[in-house]
């Protein structure tokens, strides 16, 4: 069986049957994304290594309980990675200015290494869509959103970090999310149409 040709849901079912080759393919597909989320938040390669490994070990151990109808595998993987990395960030009490956080503006390259082209293209399209959307936000909204998403900061912490009034930060977060929602919705409609 050529595991590379299989879609995510099929591979997850095989992982649930302890097929390590299926996990290997999912790792090839999504480890870059998972590692990137961890590195963006924690900026420490050894910790990012550990968090990435743990994310895939959790997938290995819990694949039978994964329900694709409730969400995409990328959402599950990046969700537990983000939570874990923010938790490490808080425990280490890293100073906010310790390392810069930023969004990626460049669009992903749609390159295939000969594995499942359909899955790779779908991920590349999703990445491009979100990056285009984030790139349309004003800088001040992007900064506030980055602190909320990558740091797990509450409104007041964001206001303290940016030196802005609390009300201003609340408005920026709200407007950023509302605009992203509109842009992503319209892009989805264009794709669907």
């Amino acid at each position: 069986m050529d595991y590379n040709k299989l879609d995510d849901d099929t591979l997850i079912r095989l992982v649930a049957r302890s097929q390590s080759e299926a996990l290997s393919v999912l790792y090839d597909r999504y480890s870059r994304l998972v590692y990137s989320v961890a590195m963006t938040i924690i900026d420490d390669p050894s910790v990012a290594d550990e968090i990435t490994q743990d994310a895939f070990v959790r997938l290995w151990e819990n694949a039978a309980a994964f329900r694709p109808e409730l969400g995409k595998l990328t959402t599950w993987l990046t969700g537990i990675t983000r939570n874990r990395a923010i938790d490490v960030f808080r425990r280490r009490k890293i100073r906010p200015e310790g390392h810069a956080i930023s969004w990626e503006d460049a669009l992903p390259e749609e390159m295939s290494d000969g594995s499942n082209v359909e899955q790779e293209v779908e991920l590349a399209h999703r990445q491009a869509k979100v990056r285009r959307a984030v790139a349309q936000l004003p800088d001040e909204q992007r900064s506030a959103l980055a602190l909320a998403y990558f740091r797990g900061y509450a409104h007041q912490q964001i206001a303290d970090t940016l030196g802005e009034p609390l009300g201003t930060v609340k408005t920026r977060i709200r407007l950023a999310m509302q605009k992203l929602r509109e842009i992503l919705k319209s892009e989805n409609e264009i794709i669907a149409g």
Binding site: L33, Y35, Q53, T75, Q127
Partner: peptide, 23 residues
């Protein structure tokens, strides 16, 4: 929307040895 934001992080490739450790 929040779930999709992870797709906008700058991409960094994990070290090749990481896959062997996982497997």
């Amino acid at each position: 929307v929040s779930d999709e934001l992870a797709l906008a992080v700058p991409q960094v490739a994990p070290p090749p040895v990481l896959k062997k450790k996982l497997m």
